[in-house]
Design a protein around this nucleic acid. Sequence first.
DNA 1: AGCCTTGTGTAACTCTTGTTACTGCATACG
DNA 2: CGTATGCAGTAACAAGAGTTACACAAGGCT
Lengths: 210, 210
Amino acid sequence: MHSELQEAYGFLFEKELLEEINKFGSLRTAKAGEKIIEIGDFVKGMPLLLKGAIKILREDSDGDELLLYFIERGDTCAMTLSCCLGETRSEIRAVAETDTSFIMVPISKMEEWTAKYKSWRNFVFESYHSRLSEMLEAIDTIAFLNMDERLMKYLRDKAKINRDENIYSTHQQIAYDMHTSRVVISRLLKKLELEKKISLQRNHIKVIDL
Amino acid sequence: MHSELQEAYGFLFEKELLEEINKFGSLRTAKAGEKIIEIGDFVKGMPLLLKGAIKILREDSDGDELLLYFIERGDTCAMTLSCCLGETRSEIRAVAETDTSFIMVPISKMEEWTAKYKSWRNFVFESYHSRLSEMLEAIDTIAFLNMDERLMKYLRDKAKINRDENIYSTHQQIAYDMHTSRVVISRLLKKLELEKKISLQRNHIKVIDL
DNA sequence: AGCCTTGTGTAACTCTTGTTACTGCATACG
DNA sequence: CGTATGCAGTAACAAGAGTTACACAAGGCT
């Protein structure tokens, strides 16, 4: 049994289920920045995150991106889950935010476990619940906040997910995630720097007080 | 057994489950415009829609609203469902779009049925899937579309849900749903009228070709 | 009829965000 | 060492959306 599996999910699942996961799931890793799922992909399995973080992005017909939310250890991607059950293609893109490892569980086992293990059912429902909440938060963010507030939230979230107040992104990368332009981000970052909320260096933003 | 229950869910659930729903659920109705669930309410049960349509709204801290999506016959509100299981308060507001009737299923039965009936599990998962998709669509709409495109989509959706190309709303009501101001809506509606896509009368918009 | 309320049309202005264009700086690399 | 490349700063402008203010029209009520 992977010790990481035990560590991340031991308190959630009974021993028997953990053994099944260990037996039928396959361990996979992805380096930071690596694409894990692409829009339109058929989803072969469901990922259980062990280490690292994944960012979930939506894309429109023009190829414009928008960050929806992050997933961490102990989470799964309910969108993926949803796709699995519906046998449909992925509606989102998943990119490793940091170096990650996760277990891919085959679709076939999921229905079986849902009937068999109460803890699995709870996990799945809980996961849906979290994802819906995060979608709501994403909606709140883009519908009700201005760019400057969204940017602050972005930086806060990013620092939190990476457990590092230093953010190593270019303005352009941030602009992609937030579906705006580089100039706008540069402008607002400079404003935040003047307000002593961050400090700016090349390829590097340090969060001081947001 | 309510004939409407049979009609709306007969093809989804086995006879036994339908009988349980009939036995433990309570029939409720709401007139168009009536509030069904308010943000912060404790959710007592899960609604199975029989007739009519419900609109689901999100509100920010300033009381500004935003329409998320509509629910129709055969649907349930996965947000509610999610709240039930988590024993948390509602994060959304539900308002009857048309005169509606639905069956309220008590929370206590849901866990039981999830274990007992495969058709119920499928329904619940399917419902989550639909809701996530609709949330994604809502995000696409506000993130990637301009006001004029959003307004056209709104009018199309509204006409479809009400099965009536005549929309009996004031510009102010539309503005609330779309989280913008009345003046903006009036301006854009007038533009659409000049483009021969709609015709405008007092309290009444007729969709011609959107 | 006269009055009031509510809904709509429109102009003028502001604010936020997006766009274009150009600058200079840092780093990598031949 | 000089040059290419990518990144960041900034100005000037354009476009979209929100705000304020006011006129007027429709319909209900006394």
